[in-house]
Amino acid sequence: MKKVYGSATEALDGLLHDGMTIAAGGFGLCGIPELLIDALVESGVKDLTVASNNCGVDGFGLGKLLDTKQIKKMMSSYVGENAEFMRQYLSGELELEFNPQGTLAERMRAGGCGIPGFYTKTGVGTVIAEGKEHKDFDGETYILERGIFADLSIVKAWKADDTGNLVFRKTARNFNPPAAMCGKICVAEVEEIVERGSLDPDCIHLPGIYVHRLIEGEHEKRIEQRTVRKREEA
């Protein structure tokens, strides 16, 4: 079956509907599916629920979908450094379900593994635990968190082969594998699609079984906090 598509818009064709849930990879602006986000903006699909650690920054990444008011609800761990995200949340325009970062990652991983819920100590005694089932195991209290089952996953990898086997680069891996796993359909964008057989099978980070559609493209890869040291300090 052919997985490689010509463009982000083509790759999303037939997959979008208003009110859908999308899981997106990336941490900050690192490893975000820039091209697929742009195609979502163009598509005009709305009332989205988006599970993503952050929501881009103002005017870039998922921040673009905030500007166009296409997002109804975010499931995230961090709002900082995105003025529009905070503004829409504080004014009540945007629903925000705060998730501790590790809980969000595990909810995605669990959903992708067919696990509808799991118990964790994270958040016990905080607002995160309110309304959730509490259960004691061996004298410790845990809360029940649900697996995330998304309609669509959008992720970014470094390299792929045409069967969808993915290789990520450095910390750009982050949420991409768990986000890819929890969607009914996963669309991946990569910097380079390489010839079948040229990726070392022992070094595949995400097997192609999780990836249904694939595009190759140029990425801006914007840096959020450029921090350097001076050479004389070395």
Binding site: F27, G28, L29, C30, G31, E81, W158, R169, K170, T171, A172, K221, R222, I223, E224, Q225, R226, T227, V228, R229, K230, R231, A234
Partner: peptide, 16 residues
């Protein structure tokens, strides 16, 4: 060092 920043390599504070 300046000029060697890699957008794919950041810490949890999003610093290179």
């Amino acid at each position: 060092f300046e000029g060697e920043e890699d957008p794919d390599l950041i810490n949890a504070g999003k610093q290179t």
